[in-house]
Simulated assay, not measured.
Amino acid sequence: MKVLFVPGNSPYPVYSHTPLATSLRNAGHQVFMGGIDWVLPKIAAMGLPPVKIAPLTVEEVASFVSSMPSDPEESARAVGGVYARIALDSLDTLTELAENWRPDIVVGGGMFYCAPLFAHRIGVPSVRLEWDRLDTRMYDPGSVEVLRPALEKEGLERVPDPDLWLDVCPPSLSDPSAPRTQPMQWMAANPQRPLEPWMYVKPDRPRIYVTAGTRLQETRVLREMADHVTGLGAEIVIGAPEDLVEPLSKEVPEARVGWFPLDVLAPTCDLIVHHGGGGTDMTALKSGVPQLVVDPEYPTRAVRVLDEYGAAITLIGEEASPEAVGRGVREILLDTSFRQRSRELASEMSQMPKPAEIVPLMEELAARGVG
């Protein structure tokens, strides 16, 4: 079986799809993963064959991120429109790929619309694999007008539904109104580095990990987040890209700064402070670690429901003052219920079907075909 993955246009979607892609390869199937220029080295680093699908550059991605509307609804529409344009840019390239390497099944991320459109064009089943707990349907309205010409050309009224929809959200945090999906256990897959003992040994004082995710371009955001949690008697670890390590180390000398494998580090942490990124959130959940989400980039239901469950505190806008962040840190460290609720979610995730258990479902789907 030949399987094409087209997860998304940034590093995290690549990492989120890697466990299933690797499980398919381990089962003897041939797997390619498509992406824009920026993510091709990330795909190769995960041990998967990368295929370029669109001409989008990292500079264009950074420009888009910096120009995002502040209004959440307008922002979601803008994101949907960008992903729709990527779909249009990539369809012909993917069709050319299929002339020489025709996949039997196509796997795409939530709003990576090129996956179901391409699968429809060549007549093979499509699989939708969510990156994290975020409900990406909120981006769909922004894609409608951009995709209309392509849909009409394909004889479609809307983007086709997937033949198999895989969801990694723990059932206790799922949206009851969401479509029926096949659960799959989320697994960590991220870049690694030579380990030092402190990374996997829990210290004798609380450890707080601070990160702003994989798209960070400058030090200000991380420095401000670190300022909020210093002086509390905890060990501070700041996750940052290598090009920001030197300036951040000078600005926050009391912290450990670097690009650390979060799947290794997270189990040793007492708290993870971040901006609501999906990869950080899912790693914290998998490790049973409480979260403090500061001014999340996407303040959606996925963020709120974790608060309601009792495994996190979220501070938005004016709520995210240094004083409020300090209070939130102290509350989470002192109130053991946050750790208990986080561990409940980790236990729940461990009971979900592993990626290897999804492989037979995909084999059956490919053998059955469409229609």
Rank of each mutant, 00 (worst) to 15 (best):
Arg137Asn: 10
Glu74Cys: 02
Ser321Thr: 15
Pro176Asn: 06
Trp165Glu: 10
Arg121Val: 10
Leu134Asn: 02
Met199Gln: 13
Tyr12Cys: 09
Ala150Phe: 10
Arg343Gln: 14
Asp71Glu: 11
Pro19Arg: 01
Thr280His: 04
His275Trp: 07
Asp161Val: 13
Pro7Tyr: 08
Trp38Asp: 07
Ala44Lys: 12
Ser67Gly: 11
Ser143Lys: 01
Thr93Trp: 09
Tyr15Ser: 00
Glu363Thr: 12
Pro253Asp: 07
Val293His: 00
Ser249Tyr: 05
Ile272His: 01
Met199Asn: 07
Pro49Val: 15
Leu334Pro: 05
Ser177Asn: 15
Pro353Gly: 08
Pro247Phe: 01
Thr22Asp: 13
Thr57Tyr: 10
Val144Gly: 00
Ile313Phe: 00
Arg339Asn: 09
Glu323Lys: 12
Glu319Ile: 04
Ala234Ile: 07
Pro253Lys: 10
Pro116Trp: 11
Gly310Asp: 01
Leu164Thr: 13
Met199Trp: 06
Ser143Met: 09
Met33Ala: 04
Thr57Pro: 09
Thr336Glu: 14
Gly110His: 02
Ser75Ile: 05
His120Leu: 07
Met33Leu: 06
Leu345Gly: 08
Pro55Gly: 02
Ile105Gly: 03
Leu334Asn: 15
Ala255Pro: 00
Met184Lys: 09
Leu91Thr: 07
His29Cys: 06
Ala356Trp: 03
Ile105Tyr: 01
Gly80Cys: 07
Met111Val: 14
Asp132Cys: 12
Glu73Tyr: 11
Pro183Tyr: 14
Asp163Lys: 10
Ser23Phe: 09
Leu365Ser: 05
Gly277Thr: 02
Met68Ala: 13
Pro7Ala: 11
Glu363Pro: 02
Gly326Gln: 15
Gly108Glu: 02
Arg158Phe: 10
Arg301Pro: 04
Gly279Asn: 07
Met1Phe: 10
Phe112Gln: 14
Glu96Lys: 15
Gly110Thr: 11
Thr211Gly: 07
Pro125Asn: 01
Asp307Phe: 08
Ser177Met: 12
Asn190Gly: 14
Ile313Thr: 07
Glu59Val: 09
Pro49Gln: 15
Val144His: 12
Asp307Tyr: 08
Arg180Phe: 09
Phe5Ala: 00
Pro355Ser: 05
His17Glu: 02
Pro69Phe: 03
Val106Thr: 06
Ala302Thr: 03
Arg223Thr: 11
Pro160Ala: 08
Arg25Ser: 14
Ala27Pro: 00
Arg193Gly: 03
Ile122Thr: 10
Phe260Asp: 00
Ile238Gly: 01
Lys2Ala: 08
Pro103Trp: 07
Leu333Trp: 11
Gly80Pro: 03
Glu59Pro: 03
Asp270Phe: 02
Glu152Asn: 06
Val264Arg: 06
Asp161Arg: 13
Asn9Glu: 14
Thr136Ile: 11
Leu173Gly: 07
Tyr209Arg: 08
Glu246Ile: 12
Val237Gln: 08
Leu134Tyr: 00
His228Glu: 13
Asp89Ser: 11
Val39Gly: 06
Lys286Thr: 13
Leu156Thr: 05
Tyr298Val: 14
Gly123Met: 04
Phe5Trp: 08
Leu147Lys: 05
Leu292Lys: 04
Leu40Cys: 10
Thr57Met: 10
Arg121Leu: 12
Leu244Ala: 02
Leu156Phe: 04
Asn100Glu: 12
Leu361Ile: 10
